[in-house]
């Protein structure tokens, strides 16, 4: 029996469309999986209630024969994207208590495509770092370890929480941002696919700014096909 959390984005999408399982079942499986790897510190905030509400809505859409390219797919969002009503931190102490009253264009597009939000992931403070060690919310641990060695390794950065949770099968996919390598380097360190599109391909609106002439959002996924599907939904 294949575990739901081992399916790729493409397989999970086809499974929901084909009625093999529901978005709610898939989301519940991921909420359990997130709990099982909580020690990696991938999330700054988990949003299980939001996730279940979004999954229910995805199942309703499917029942009506509707639904976008990522209908019912549970994903994690780097905590640099503003999501309406959910506190955003950018991995910094200085945003204490800030709850965005608006939605970033990238996350808006993902929700339009039917994706489900599992939570906001840990990152280097203001995306400045290559190790996820500069987060105010503590380091993220890479799910990989050296052969015969228990030393905790960095997941890379700045999208360290996003890369580690996808690698640990605690989310189907995650958003990242890349200014100088912040999607691709953690993707490489965690053994998953990380894609930075052309500057300007994804809107920067509602994404907390680091270096505006370089910042670009992109997907972190387990396969190239999944990255292609997700970028189509983000752009």
């Amino acid at each position: 029996m294949v575990r739901l959390t081992d399916l790729t984005l493409a397989q999970a999408r086809d499974g929901i469309v084909g009625g093999e399982f529901s978005a709610q079942e898939l989301t519940e499986a991921y909420l359990t999986a997130m709990g099982a790897v909580r020690s990696l510190n991938c999330f700054i905030r988990e949003t299980p209630d939001v996730a279940m509400a979004m999954a229910t809505a995805a199942d309703d859409r499917r029942a009506r024969g509707e639904g976008g390219a990522m209908n019912g797919i549970p994903i994690a969002i780097k905590d640099l994207f503003c999501t309406k009503g959910v506190p955003a931190t950018a991995g910094s102490h200085i945003l204490d208590g800030f709850t965005p009253p608006y939605e970033s264009t990238v996350t808006h597009n993902l929700w339009e495509a039917g994706a489900v939000m599992l939570g906001k992931t840990n990152l280097d403070e203001f995306a400045m770092g290559s190790s996820n060690m500069t987060s105010y919310f503590g380091p993220v641990t890479n799910p990989w370890q050296r052969t015969g060695d228990d030393a905790k390794l960095v997941p890379g950065g700045s999208s360290g929480g996003s890369a580690a949770i996808v690698a640990a099968h605690g989310a189907v996919a995650a958003t990242g941002t890349d200014t100088g390598g912040s999607i691709r380097q953690p993707g490489s360190f965690c053994g998953i696919v990380g894609m930075k599109p052309t500057y300007g391909r994804c809107s920067r609106w509602g994404t907390i700014a680091f270096a505006s002439s370089l910042d670009q959002a992109g997907p972190l996924t387990r396969t190239v096909r999944d990255a292609a599907i997700m970028l189509g939904a983000m752009a």
């Binding site: 290559s130 190790s131 890379g156 890349d178 200014t179 100088g180 390598g181 999607i183 691709r184 380097q185 993707g187 490489s188 053994g191 998953i192 696919v193 990380g194 894609m195 930075k196 599109p197 052309t198 500057y199 300007g200 391909r201 370089l214 670009q216 190239v224 990255a227």
Partner: peptide, 21 residues
Amino acid sequence: YLNDVLTVPASMAGLPAISVP
């Protein structure tokens, strides 16, 4: 900073790039 030595050039030129395990 040297972690990003191979990824930064494409960033500086705004180009699309992917990392594949």
